[in-house]
Amino acid sequence: MDNLVFERTKGLTKKEFSYCPGCTHGIIHRLVAEVLEELNVLDTAVGVASVGCSVINYEYFDCDMQQAAHGRAPAVATGIKRVNPENTVFTYQGDGDLAAIGTAEIIHAAHRNENISVMFVNNAIFGMTGGQMAPTTLPGQKTTTSQNGRDPYVVGMPIRMSEVLGQIPGAYYVERVSVHNPKHIIKAKKAIKKAFQNQIDGKGFSLVEFISTCPINWRMTPNDSLKWVEDSMIPYYPLGVVKDGDKND
């Protein structure tokens, strides 16, 4: 195998993903798994699965996992990390989970500067329950509970969680990335690596927000979904570092 140039990451089990065609959860899973492997922390990692499409990702990541109640992953991760600080602890949460029911838990995990890494997947919709409106749903976006399109006059403008979290003094590192093309996938992986390296270095709360797709519930083809990320999502959810404790010193 001298000429081996690529192999499947050891961070993922052999279980097939349950995700829909064109959904970018799979890419994000692989990036997180590759980072865990490259940082040599798979053996000490404890992941926290949340509620949403990624609810059974404890079957996909090849490390110890806990499955949390809807929105509570940051509190569960806090419990794990506080009693076993030598573990590398991460949550993997969607926007229905983190930006709606779990706002208190994520804000206070950041506020306490919990030394955990949060993978926040924002696809602007409740995916698993069948495409309901999320706090992150864009104005005019049609969902099963905003069938005429999100009306900001009635339900407000979408919440930008990275910006919310970035202004919390305790948060160390917050970056928003996208995985809609190879260039951005490479950037996303760098952000994930930084979020985990920060934890290993004891720097504290680090969050990566991924702009992700949901072709089925967006009622779009996978290609159109990637284009919608570029044309509609990214203008409202600008990519880049929101906060970096390394640069604020």
Partner: peptide, 14 residues
């Protein structure tokens, strides 16, 4: 709510 979920995490971690 957060407190009992911290108990869940820490208890699950042994």
């Amino acid at each position: 709510v957060a407190a009992i979920n911290m108990v869940y995490g820490a208890g699950g971690a042994g």
